[in-house]
Computed example of a mutant assay.
Amino acid sequence: MTTTRKCPICRKPRAAEHAPFCSPRCRDRDLAQWFGDGYAVPGPAATPEDMMGEMQRREGDAD
Rank of each mutant, 00 (worst) to 15 (best):
G36F: 00
T4W: 09
P24H: 04
A16F: 06
P44I: 00
M52T: 13
S23L: 01
R5D: 15
P42A: 15
Y39C: 01
R25W: 05
M1W: 08
P8R: 05
G60Y: 05
A46M: 03
C10T: 05
P24T: 03
D28L: 08
Q56N: 11
P42Y: 08
K6E: 15
T47N: 11
D50V: 01
G53D: 14
R5N: 13
D50N: 09
G60C: 01
E49V: 07
A45E: 15
M51L: 12
V41M: 04
E17K: 13
Q56S: 10
H18N: 10
A46P: 06
P42M: 10
D28G: 11
R27M: 13
P24M: 12
P48G: 08
A19S: 14
G53H: 10
Y39N: 07
C26R: 07
F35G: 10
T47Y: 05
R14N: 10
E17D: 12
R58Y: 07
T2C: 01
G36C: 05
D30H: 15
D63S: 08
D63Q: 14
G38I: 05
R57V: 02
T4E: 15
K12M: 14
C22D: 07
K6I: 13
I9V: 15
M55L: 11
G43E: 03
H18S: 09
M51G: 02
T3G: 07
E54W: 02
L31I: 06
A19P: 00
A40D: 10
T47P: 08
K12N: 13
E54H: 03
R5E: 15
R58N: 11
A40N: 07
P44W: 02
P13Q: 09
M55G: 04
E59M: 06
D61K: 09
A40R: 15
R58L: 15
Q56V: 12
R27T: 08
P13E: 12
A46E: 03
D63M: 04
D63E: 12
M52A: 14
A45F: 02
I9G: 01
F35V: 06
A46D: 02
P24F: 01
R25C: 09
T4R: 14
G38Y: 04
C10H: 06
